[in-house]
Design a protein around this nucleic acid. Structure first.
Length: 153
DNA sequence: GCCAACGTTGGC
DNA sequence: GCCAACGTTGGC
């Protein structure tokens, strides 16, 4: 990745009963389509993603926690689960789990995360994460801030 | 299991 | 193009 070609950060929500972190890990380095999104805002964010962008993997519903880090492995392409040409998705692959999951409760209790989309708009399933939010949550989860494999060179 | 928040649909 | 009705998501 070229100097100045900034890595962007995202968050992907999933109901663990439907598609869990373990399911994602099982797909290995090839990754898997983040399909099934039927929301324009979420789709538009996926269209902005580039290979090497990083994301948090969030378990919604019962668990309500960020559990791992993923990397975009393919840019937006038609969603194979529908013939409707409006819907596109990226592919993502698991990078590593968070040593300590960061719960929604922890995010809500942290003033520096008050503006986070996860905190402010609970309905959006694919969302951007600010670099400072990314770094903070990585630390809260017991990780040094991650850079993409491409950015490390 | 309830319901608030939000997005989408469709009648006008 | 407005907005009421409806469906869905996801926190609680």
């Amino acid at each position: 990745m070229e100097e100045g070609d900034r890595v962007n950060y995202w968050l992907f929500k999933s109901e663990p009963d439907v598609w869990s972190w373990d399911d994602q890990v099982a797909k290995g380095a090839a990754g898997e389509e983040w399909d099934g999104v039927r929301n324009y805002q979420a789709r538009n964010f996926m269209r902005e993603m580039k290979v090497g962008d990083l994301g948090f993997f969030y378990h919604s519903n019962k668990e309500r926690a960020i559990v791992g880090i993923v990397e975009v492995s393919a840019e937006a392409h038609p969603d194979s689960t529908t013939d409707d040409p409006r819907w596109e998705c990226v592919d993502i692959r698991a990078v590593e789990p968070l040593p300590r999951p960061v719960t929604l409760e922890m995010c809500k209790a942290e003033p520096r995360l008050a503006e986070m989309v996860l905190v402010k708009n609970s309905r959006l399933s694919v969302q951007p994460v600010r670099p400072e939010e990314w770094a903070l949550i990585c630390r809260m989860g017991g990780l040094e801030e991650r850079r993409s494999a491409a950015a490390r060179g």
